[in-house]
Design a protein around this nucleic acid. Structure first.
Lengths: 315, 315
DNA sequence: CTCACAGGTGAAAGGTATTTTCGCGGGCTC
DNA sequence: GAGCCCGCGAAAATACCTTTCACCTGTGAG
């Protein structure tokens, strides 16, 4: 897997695509499996699911054993381990042992069933809350700090920042732009793909363009990102599919995690949670780096809002 | 796998009847080492101590590596593993990985201090995540199911739904309206206070107006809610201050929780999380009640988006 | 309908890590 | 001081993991 398949964009970067398979994560393995599952082959999915479903059991198995149990071959097991970010099966196995110990001691009741049509409201609340919390933990676990760091640096130095998002992601884009504006950065969120492209071509080196798309394949945000990329801007993708098309035009990729989705709980719901966490991290990162100007700016915007609040209400 | 571990016992150990020295224990390895230490040879003690002192580090080593690190031989390492109750080094290593994971996760939850300006990015992520998760748990715990139920009922029966929110809450309002629209309800989010009031006066009994404000004192959303209230609509307040002015005009109050805020992490950030959870609960509640129409509608909107995605990427 | 192709897959070869064997050497007993 | 026993590590033997390579299946073009 070395092919740096030349994208249509003519700009050549030293580190073209493939933002490195993945770092060996701590315990957010189930999340990783979910994130990667769509890009896996059938056999690999079987392996990944088996492993995620029963870490303890699988940790006790050798490659051959796991291959048999999943009805596949050793080669496939190793391939899956690689895809999940480990050097080989041995290391996956170690991680599995760790995970098993963790959830054994943590007494993790992790298993939440899907939300169904006839669940009472109290269950809905409980399950939804549990899922969201899990999503947050997974996202944090899977976040590549190096990529975050790089993105923060780029943002801090940017002359201008464009954020692209449509549909549910559009709100996240707006939220982010709003926040950055508040600490004195020049940021804009674009939901209209035409305007987004129009603006993207004005970006140049030193500027930053961020595309937010859960699927990684939303053309409406890929196009402006590509335009920005081609014009030399630093590009960032916030996506749930690190192998999606959007990452071809992204200098930095921030992976959001995916929760189990169901009919009543579309993917958009958990991807939003995940995306928000990512942008909040970016925001705070930037605010730290620009503290001298950010702090007064935050204060000022707070003051500015005070008079929009009802004056009474002693406390 | 034949597991012929029994033969070496007959000669050396004084206990010929005990083929298995001990059961493979969970995490009380340090204790075991202490107990067994006296009966160990010098080299084995070195190995055992090294292992107990740094499980994580040792888990990363191979037999040869650990032998070198302890200045002993591979055979001794294996012997030590046996003495500690494992079939061989491989299994000790697995246990070590588990132990490492356990104490890594056990050490984590302590940090809940404020995010400060010089926190490294990894701490920012951890703290932010922790805070968000706490906020979710708090919100779920504090939610009044009766009020949620009542709101869901009102929404389900509504002819028309208006949602008011400004600032950060405006995004939440939009998100909610968007979702409701998608399952066939007539919902509108208003960020402009003038338009909001203009629209509010058109509501009547059976309609629903929802105001979202963290402070409970945002006049821009209180005014339209009051207008709706005066015109007979069912009114709902989603607020972090159940004693705030907004609740005077609300038939139902849904309380959102607030996390500790700091200079770098404004209240808006956690209130947003909280608010989103509440509207998601409302949404799913409504979707359940109107399943007959909601399910096909959700499906249809999903289909409608398919062609906006890049066509390649079959899987 | 056939062909060519791409990619998934497993059998088996090829390496590496682990386990076992074997014998040396040091210390204790007599 | 000699004999015995135990601890210890080097190296052989084995189990396990990784890589290679050819087959096979499904897919799209002609």
């Amino acid at each position: 897997m070395k092919e740096n398949f030349a994208r249509r964009g003519e700009r050549a970067r030293p580190a073209p695509v493939a933002p490195r398979p993945a770092p060996p994560e701590p315990g957010a393995l189930a999340a990783k499996v979910r994130t990667m599952a769509p890009s896996m082959t059938r056999s690999m999915q079987r392996v990944a699911e088996t492993v995620a479903a029963d870490p303890a059991g699988c940790a006790a198995l050798t490659v051959t054993g796991l291959a048999e149990r999943t009805g596949t071959s050793e080669a496939t097991v190793v391939r899956t381990a690689r895809l999940l970010g480990y050097p080989g099966y041995r290391d996956l196995r170690l991680a599995l042992a760790g995970l098993a110990a963790q959830q054994a001691s943590g007494a993790a009741p992790a298993i939440t069933t899907d939300i169904s049509v006839d669940d009472p409201l109290s269950d809905v609340i409980a399950k939804l809350t549990q899922d969201e919390r899990q999503t947050l933990a997974d996202t944090a676990g899977a976040l590549d700090i190096g990529q975050v760091e790089a993105t923060v640096s780029a943002l801090t130095a940017a002359r201008r920042i464009d954020v692209y998002g449509v549909g549910a992601s559009s709100l996240v884009a707006q939220d982010f732009a709003q926040k950055l504006l508040r600490i004195g950065l020049v940021a804009h969120a674009h939901a209209d793909p035409h305007l987004a492209v129009t603006n993207a071509v004005q970006l140049r080196a030193g500027d930053v363009a961020i595309a937010i798309t859960h699927s990684g394949r939303t053309v409406d945000v890929i196009e402006p990102l590509q335009a920005a990329f081609d014009h030399g801007a630093t590009t960032v993708a916030i996506t749930g599919r690190p192998d999606g098309e959007v990452t071809q035009y992204a200098d930095h990729v921030l992976t959001t995690s995916t929760a189990r989705e169901s009919e009543l709980r579309p993917a958009a719901m958990s991807s939003r949670t995940s995306q928000l966490l990512v942008i909040d991290c970016l925001f705070i990162g930037v605010a730290q780096r620009t503290y001298e100007t950010a702090a007064p700016a935050l204060h000022a915007s707070y003051e500015a809002l005070a008079h929009r609040h009802s004056p009474r209400e002693t406390r």
